[in-house]
Amino acid sequence: MGKIKLSNIKVYAYHGCLREESIIGSDYSVDVELVADLTKASISDDLEDTVDYVLINHIVKEEMAIKSKLLEHVAKRILDRIFDSCGSVSKAEVRVSKINPPINGDVEMVSINLQLTR
């Protein structure tokens, strides 16, 4: 087994419960950690034997482009797409962070984490 991590994928998106958030948008950061059997890829040196992190980045950007009220909903969609697209992934964790959330306080970011195991 092995892990593949994509850290700090930066996205501008339009998520939130406030009407203004869906109009103005804000900055987000997404982290993805995947567990998969990387043994074959470590021997073959073939992209088809591993999890293509270009595909993972693409999935994150596509799902972040779909407006949602809750970050939990966005994270679940990302996880579902990863499991649908990558059969070798046995476990995945996604963290979605909203940078400078509009919560009347000095808060750098708010994050949610979701995990899914096959």
Rank of each mutant, 00 (worst) to 15 (best):
P101T: 10
N104A: 10
I78Q: 02
I56P: 06
N104Q: 09
R95I: 15
M64V: 10
I43Q: 13
K98E: 02
V35P: 04
R77L: 04
G87S: 13
A36G: 11
G16Q: 01
S97C: 14
V96H: 07
L114M: 14
V110E: 00
L70V: 02
C86T: 06
I103C: 11
V96L: 10
E20F: 03
V35C: 09
V35H: 15
E72V: 05
L116R: 15
F83Y: 12
V107Y: 03
N113D: 07
I59S: 05
A36P: 11
S29T: 12
F83G: 09
S29K: 10
I59A: 09
I78G: 00
K98T: 05
Q115V: 15
E21R: 01
H73R: 10
V54A: 08
L70M: 11
L55T: 11
I23Q: 02
T39I: 02
K91Y: 08
E20L: 09
Y53K: 03
K3S: 15
L55K: 11
I103T: 09
K76R: 10
M64N: 12
L116Y: 14
E108A: 08
G2S: 14
V110Q: 04
C17F: 08
A92M: 01
I4H: 05
K40R: 15
V60D: 13
K98F: 03
D46H: 12
R81Y: 14
V74G: 00
I103M: 13
V60M: 09
T50P: 07
V89K: 02
D37Y: 03
I78A: 05
E93Y: 07
G16F: 02
I43N: 09
E21K: 01
S68V: 02
I99V: 14
I112T: 13
S44Y: 03
H15M: 08
N100A: 11
L55D: 15
L79C: 07
F83K: 01
A13N: 05
N104T: 01
N8H: 13
Q115I: 14
G2M: 12
I24S: 00
K61N: 09
T117R: 13
A92H: 02
E93P: 01
I9G: 03
V32Q: 08
L70K: 10
R81S: 15
V60I: 12
G16T: 04
C17R: 00
E63C: 06
I43G: 09
V54G: 07
A75F: 06
D49W: 07
A92R: 03
E63F: 01
S68P: 00
M109P: 04
L18Q: 11
T50W: 06
E33L: 06
R77G: 01
L6C: 07
I78W: 00
N113P: 03
V51R: 12
N100K: 14
S26R: 10
S88D: 11
E48Y: 09
Q115R: 12
E33T: 14
E72P: 02
A13K: 10
K76S: 14
A13W: 00
S88Y: 05
M109C: 07
P101C: 12
D31W: 06
L55P: 05
R77D: 00
